[in-house]
């Protein structure tokens, strides 16, 4: 398929990346991985994505900084960005209005949750 939805996952935990990749490839999506915020930003700049999933705490550039930068890029004003947070609650507080985050998903998540969130954000 030439135009399968393309998803960027920015996350330092390989386990989470793997879960995301597996799940979304199973529905024939294209998934590109980035290990930290800086890499995520670079990849977002180089190509266009239908949706971005990102962790909050990452080396090199944290998730919120990256999102701020991505939102500045042409074509990314409306792109859904889903933040992957932990249960602690601390993370969620920092994700408020103006952060550029469209939704969040609490880790650890089941593949089904991911499908629900991605589905409702994209379509």
């Amino acid at each position: 398929m030439s135009g399968a939805p393309k998803i960027l996952i920015v996350e330092d935990s390989m386990m989470v990346r793997m879960t995301v990749k597996r799940t979304l490839i199973s529905v024939d999506f294209e998934v590109v991985e980035a290990k930290d915020g800086a890499e995520g930003l670079a990849k977002a700049q180089a190509d266009s994505y239908d949706l971005i999933l990102t962790d909050l705490n990452m080396p090199n550039m944290d998730g919120l900084t990256m999102i701020k930068n991505i939102r500045q890029l042409p074509g990314y004003a409306e792109t859904p960005i889903v933040m992957l947070t932990t249960e602690s609650g601390e993370d969620k507080k920092s994700i408020g209005h103006g952060s550029g985050v469209s939704a969040w998903l609490v880790k650890p998540f089941e593949p089904d949750h991911l499908i629900e969130v991605v589905g409702s954000m994209l379509f």
Partner: peptide, 15 residues
């Protein structure tokens, strides 16, 4: 199934 729905939408978009 949610996953199938998503897959179908993906194909629909691409097609």
């Amino acid at each position: 199934q949610p996953a199938i729905a998503l897959k179908v939408l993906g194909i629909a978009k691409s097609v």
